[in-house]
Simulated scan of single mutants.
Amino acid sequence: MVRGLWPDMALQAGAASLRLTTRLKPQGPVRTYGPYGLAPGASRLDLRATGRLFRVRFSGQVAPTGGRIGRPVFDVVPTGSR
């Protein structure tokens, strides 16, 4: 389970968003979480998403949007499901 994100974004201009897509198995059904807003200067994003395989997408919605995405750090814990 993903419980949060510490984004590593520099020179961010405009709001960005984060969308997570998860699966429990490689050929299993897809579940989408978000979009979650990332304001310039945000230090942490609280969220809750479950799965074993994750796809992360950052995007911008307004003009101008730009910045540098570094190495985001996710707060992940096991759920106990097999």
Results as ranks from 00 to 15, higher is better:
40 P>V: 03
8 D>N: 07
64 P>A: 07
14 G>E: 02
65 T>W: 05
35 P>I: 00
48 R>S: 15
10 A>R: 14
14 G>M: 01
23 R>G: 00
11 L>M: 10
5 L>T: 03
71 R>A: 07
81 S>F: 15
22 T>D: 04
54 F>W: 08
42 A>D: 09
61 Q>G: 09
19 R>M: 08
12 Q>C: 01
58 F>I: 10
60 G>S: 07
17 S>L: 05
7 P>I: 01
80 G>A: 15
63 A>S: 10
14 G>Q: 01
65 T>K: 01
73 V>Q: 15
39 A>V: 05
2 V>A: 12
49 A>E: 08
53 L>A: 12
10 A>E: 11
55 R>A: 14
32 T>Y: 00
23 R>P: 01
51 G>E: 10
32 T>L: 00
31 R>T: 11
65 T>E: 09
22 T>G: 03
75 D>Q: 13
9 M>Y: 09
51 G>N: 13
13 A>S: 11
64 P>N: 01
31 R>C: 01
56 V>R: 08
73 V>S: 14
47 L>H: 07
18 L>P: 07
7 P>C: 04
15 A>P: 06
19 R>V: 11
34 G>C: 02
1 M>C: 12
81 S>Y: 15
12 Q>R: 01
35 P>R: 00
57 R>V: 12
45 L>I: 09
17 S>Q: 13
79 T>H: 12
4 G>P: 06
37 G>E: 08
38 L>S: 02
48 R>K: 14
61 Q>P: 03
11 L>K: 10
14 G>C: 04
73 V>E: 13
69 I>T: 08
75 D>T: 11
55 R>H: 13
44 R>M: 11
35 P>F: 00
52 R>A: 15
9 M>Q: 12
69 I>C: 05
10 A>S: 14
39 A>K: 07
46 D>S: 14
49 A>H: 10
43 S>K: 10
55 R>D: 13
8 D>V: 05
39 A>Q: 09
57 R>G: 09
37 G>P: 08
59 S>C: 06
20 L>R: 04
1 M>E: 14
46 D>K: 13
69 I>D: 01
22 T>R: 02
34 G>R: 06
40 P>Q: 04
59 S>P: 06
72 P>G: 02
74 F>Q: 07
52 R>D: 12
22 T>M: 02
75 D>A: 12
61 Q>C: 03
50 T>Q: 15
79 T>S: 15
